[in-house]
C-alpha cells in the first residue's frame, strides 16, 4: 500500500497546560511493501506518529493518503474500519486481552471487526501460532505464557489477515534471544508484501537497510524512493 504523508503536524497539551508539538512537518511518499524505519529518542513522538499513520489520531494539519484513500478526510468510524482491515499492530508490550485464551486473543478482535468467519480465522490462527512455535498453547491464557511467547501471540494477531500495513513499535524489546529472532524474522519476511513501519533499537534490524527512515525529534528524512 502506498502511503503519502504530506506536512503532518501534531501537538498535545502537556500536563502543565502548555501545547507541545510532537510531530512537525513530516512528508514522505512511501511505496507499497517498503520498510520504513522510524527513529528518535524516547518521547520523540514515535507512538503518536504510528497512531497518525493508522488513522487513530488525526493530525492538526497535513494529510495522509493510503493508496487512493485520504485517511484524514474519513470519519472516525471509517478510519476504524480502514484500520481494522489494513493495519496490523505489534507493540513493545504485547497488549493481549488477559481474560481471553490465546486463540481468542488472536481471532476474536478480527471477528468483531468483521475480518472473516470464525472457523476460517481459527484455522489460520492455529497455523500461524504453530509456525511461531506456540501451537501447543492455544487454550492457555496470557499469564500462563512467557514474555516471548506472548509477543509471538501478538505477532500472530497482527498478521492474521495479511494487513497491507504493519506497525511494529519496539517489537523485540524485552524478549529473550530466541523469541526476538522469531519475531524479527516474522516481521522482515513481510517486506515487499506489506508496508512495514518499524521502530526498534534491536541490533538485529541494523543489518537491514530500510527503504525510508523517518527520524522524529525535529528532523525528517527526505523521501528516498
Amino acid at each position: 500500500m502506498r502511503i503519502v504523508l504530506n506536512g503532518l503536524e501534531k501537538s498535545f497539551l502537556d500536563p502543565s497546560g502548555n501545547r507541545r508539538r510532537v510531530i512537525s512537518a513530516i512528508s514522505a511518499d512511501i511505496a507499497p511493501g517498503a520498510l520504513v524505519a522510524v527513529t528518535g529518542p524516547s518521547g520523540a513522538g514515535k507512538t503518536t506518529f504510528f497512531n497518525l499513520v493508522s488513522g487513530l489520531f488525526l493530525p492538526d494539519s497535513g494529510t495522509i493518503t493510503a493508496d487512493k484513500t485520504e485517511l484524514t478526510a474519513l470519519s472516525e468510524r471509517e478510519r476504524d474500519r480502514w484500520r481494522a482491515k489494513e493495519v496490523g499492530y505489534i507493540f513493545q508490550t504485547f497488549n493481549l486481552l488477559s481474560d481471553l485464551s490465546i486463540i481468542d486473543n488472536v481471532v476474536l478482535p478480527h471477528i468483531l471487526i468483521g475480518n472473516g468467519a470464525k472457523g476460517d480465522l481459527e484455522k489460520r490462527a492455529e497455523e500461524s501460532l504453530t509456525a511461531l512455535g506456540i501451537g501447543d498453547h492455544l487454550r492457555k491464557y496470557p499469564h500462563q505464557l512467557s514474555v516471548g511467547q506472548r509477543q509471538r501471540v501478538a505477532v500472530a494477531r497482527a498478521l492474521l489477515v495479511s494487513p497491507r500495513i504493519i506497525i511494529a513499535d519496539e517489537p523485540t524489546a524485552n524478549l529473550d534471544d530466541a523469541s526476538a529472532r522469531i519475531v524479527a524474522d516474522a516481521i522482515l519476511t513481510l517486506r515487499g508484501r506489506s508496508t512495514v513501519f518499524l521502530a526498534s533499537h534491536d541490533g538485529r534490524f541494523n543489518a537491514v537497510k530500510p527503504d525510508h527512515t523517518i527520524a522524529l525529534g525535529g528532523e525528517v528524512s527526505p523521501c528516498v524512493r
Binding site: 497512531n51 493508522s54 487513530l56 472516525e76 468510524r77 476504524d80 474500519r81 480502514w82 484500520r83 481494522a84 482491515k85 493495519v87 499492530y89 497488549n95 486481552l97 488477559s98 478482535p109 468483531l112 471487526i113 494477531r157
Partner: peptide, 11 residues
C-alpha cells in the same frame, strides 16, 4: 485493554 481494542479497529 480497551485502548487496544480501539487500536485494533473496534469502534
Amino acid at each position: 485493554e480497551l485502548a487496544l481494542l480501539r487500536i485494533l479497529g473496534i469502534g
